[in-house]
């Protein structure tokens, strides 16, 4: 489904990602872990099409297409969804109506009919229950005045409504208390299917107790320094990230 090859990314004058390789197949759940500033969000944003990052080398192929040539809105329509680490507040734009416009844009791309108001309402209701999200929040302007946790939950609510093929969750777990985390994880798990892939970006192993990944990759200073199964996450939780630095340095010396 997704293949990233030797991806180099710059923001301003600074190179942040120094050659990332990653392959994600439909049905898989990959976790990307790494310390602050290692480039996790940069990777997520580049996948979603953020133009303030400059891809200086490498390729991203999504379902056989050159993803880097595709505008953000078209990526969304092709089934890519990123849950933001810091969801944006948009006063004056209603959550529900904006989501309906988004859903219809995506459905149009898929050759499906637009949802009518009633079907949409039912869909929203169903997903609201799934994520135990308050109806009042949904009818408010996008993220305006939401608490940190509410914003994160709203991201997953949008994910559930839009039903993407590739979902990238950028630190959806941070800022959630344990109950909220369980709800969100339950929401994500219920969306897992053989056609859908997830990239779960996180700092902590905790969320991976609930969303069990197939693969774990460790991002450190803009490089994937280690990949493995779910045990890797547990190892990281115990040892922290600092030992990885030494390991990379020595690996580079050997090379």
């Amino acid at each position: 489904m997704l293949e990233i090859k030797d991806l180099h990314v710059k923001a301003g004058d600074k190179e942040i990602l120094h050659g990332i390789n990653l392959k994600v197949k439909a049905g898989e759940v990959h976790s990307i872990m790494g310390p602050n500033g290692s480039g996790k969000s940069t990777l997520a944003q580049v996948l979603a099409g953020r133009e303030s990052y400059e891809v200086t080398a490498g390729q991203i192929t999504y379902e056989g297409k050159d993803l880097l040539q595709i505008a953000p809105e078209d990526r969304a329509r092709l089934g890519i969804f990123m849950a933001f680490q810091y969801p944006v507040e948009i006063p004056g734009v209603s959550n529900t109506y904006f989501l309906k416009a988004a859903l219809n844009a995506i459905r149009k791309e898929r050759g499906e009919e637009e949802v009518d108001a009633l079907d949409f309402l039912n869909l929203v209701k169903e997903k609201m229950e799934l994520l135990k999200i308050d109806e009042k929040l949904i009818s408010r302007p996008v993220n305006e005045g939401f608490s940190g946790g509410e914003k994160k939950r709203n991201e997953i609510f949008q994910l559930a409504v839009l039903e993407p093929k590739l979902a990238i969750l950028d630190e959806t777990d941070s800022g959630l208390d344990i109950d909220a985390l369980k709800v969100v994880a339950h929401g994500v798990n219920s969306l897992r299917s053989k056609d859908r892939a997830f990239i779960v970006v996180t700092h902590y192993q905790r969320i991976l107790n609930y969303i069990i990944p197939d693969y774990v990759h460790v991002l450190y200073d803009g490089r994937v320094v280690k990949s493995g199964g779910k045990q890797l996450a547990i190892e990281l939780e115990k040892k922290g990230y600092s030992w990885l630095g030494e390991e990379t340095v020595s690996a580079q010396l050997v090379n």
């Binding site: 979603a48 099409g49 953020r50 133009e51 303030s52 505008a71 953000p72 809105e73 990526r75 969304a76 329509r77 969804f81 990123m82 933001f84 969801p87 944006v88 507040e89 948009i90 006063p91 004056g92 734009v93 904006f98 989501l99 416009a101 988004a102 859903l103 844009a105 995506i106 791309e109 302007p141 996008v142 949008q158 839009l162």
Partner: peptide, 30 residues
């Protein structure tokens, strides 16, 4: 126009022209 908000809307499948107009309208609607 808030570039973060524009990107947020586009990343959900809304085209740029509509996203811009949405934000402009939101500004005026207050």
């Amino acid at each position: 126009l808030d570039q973060d908000a524009l990107f947020y809307l586009c990343s959900r499948g809304i085209d740029k022209a509509t996203a811009r107009s949405l934000l402009i309208y939101a500004f005026a609607s207050e």
